[in-house]
Design a protein around this nucleic acid. Structure first.
Lengths: 219, 219
DNA sequence: GCTAGATTGTACCCGTCAGTACAATCCGTC
DNA sequence: GACGGATTGTACTGACGGGTACAATCTAGC
């Protein structure tokens, strides 16, 4: 709504930034849905208010479009994550909230997940070329490191926790939950993906992560 | 070695089963490497001791080849898993061993992982069509269920453990570790994928799973 | 109101790639 | 040693799809 208004501020016939965004949005959907070689430039164009000609004008070639679509997808989710403020919570609550949030956030951004899957199929070639994205992710780790540090100082987290390894564990569950839903549902039924099933998996994941972070109870 | 001998049992020039296996192996590599539309039938043929003509003769079309390649990949890994005998171990040891094994097994079968990734990109369409594969997976769950039951009876596992949810958690870590290695390494460095890093992640995963399974210590 | 540069539409080119026609060859069996 | 079905090689086709040529139109600034 507000976006549409902002996009129309210039003229009706020429609006470069609006066109770029329009194309990028279409590209993310199409690439996420069909993969790099599965996506057709003509199909992306068809999802657009403009034409194939414009895609080549603004993005050079298919690879250029793909790279920018990937950046756009990353940018969107990391932006959403940045809104989460955990600094004021005690470490245990902060970690709990972070895990639950990540689980839900991934779940509500399937296009992003699929872009990352595709990027992994292609050995992260496009990602390597974009240092923009790396910065966004360093920030995510720093947030986690800060929680770990506070937890250690308060004596409730074990010493020497590795925030990267912890992030790996959180991502694994949250990512797999979306990325492998199709095959998992076919093989084991879709109960796990009902509301109740998801709630269970989320709390199970929170529990697993907390167990890694917490200091062992004395035997 | 033994395979090559068996394959040559018929004649040198005609050997249908050998040709089929040869094609399937090439197809798994190529599909795993490049995805469904990324893989080219001509390239698969080039990896083969025979010709493109034979692919169409034995498999009908590209989709038929893909489906059978997927089945072959599943068959190979589940076969490897079936060798693991846990019935004689106490539940805690059995679960520990199962998790560690799964972690390593996935890691040493990257082609399988990539086939599953690709299948997920395509909404598991080929997988749904093959009931062969479903059976293989039910067996995996049954093995886990048996461990859970014994653990509950002995009073060391919590009651009402869901083997499917547990399997989900084990798979998530083991799968993600391989599937997302490229992007994860680009974003966070590849220390996690060194021998030391992998050992750490494996034991961290074992710990997380055990924490889910074990009965809570009385407060 | 004209010029320069930025944007856009139409129509096309040309390589790639799934799939095939057709004929040849093999091999077990009689 | 000839028949018939199973297997294989060669050479092609036809559509699809990434990318472009060329000209038209827009917009800002003078």
């Amino acid at each position: 709504m507000t976006n549409a208004m902002a996009e129309d501020r210039r003229s009706w016939t020429q609006n470069p930034e609006g066109v770029r965004r329009d194309i990028l949005a279409a590209a993310v959907s199409e690439f996420a849905e069909r993969g790099l070689s599965g996506a057709k430039v003509d199909d992306i164009a068809a999802r657009t208010r403009t034409s194939k000609r414009m895609i080549y004008y603004y993005f050079g070639d298919k690879m250029g479009l793909y790279t920018q679509a990937l950046e756009a997808a990353y940018h969107k989710v990391r932006e959403g994550e940045a809104l989460l403020d955990l600094g004021h919570l005690p470490p245990l609550d902060a970690l709990t909230k972070l895990v639950a949030f990540t689980f839900d956030h991934h779940r509500s951004n399937p296009d992003f997940i699929r872009m990352v899957m595709i990027e992994n199929i292609h050995q992260a070639k496009a990602l390597s070329a974009s240092e923009k994205i790396r910065d966004l992710n360093i920030a995510a780790i720093e947030k986690l490191r800060e929680i770990c540090d506070r937890g250690e100082q308060e004596g409730i987290f074990r010493r020497g926790l590795d925030p990267v390894a912890l992030h790996w564990q959180i991502s694994a569950a949250s990512f797999f939950n979306v990325s492998n839903r199709p095959t998992f549902a076919v093989l084991f039924g879709d109960e796990m993906f009902s509301d109740a099933g998801q709630a269970h998996l989320r709390s199970q994941t929170v529990e697993a992560i907390l167990a890694i972070a917490k200091k062992h109870e004395a035997p």
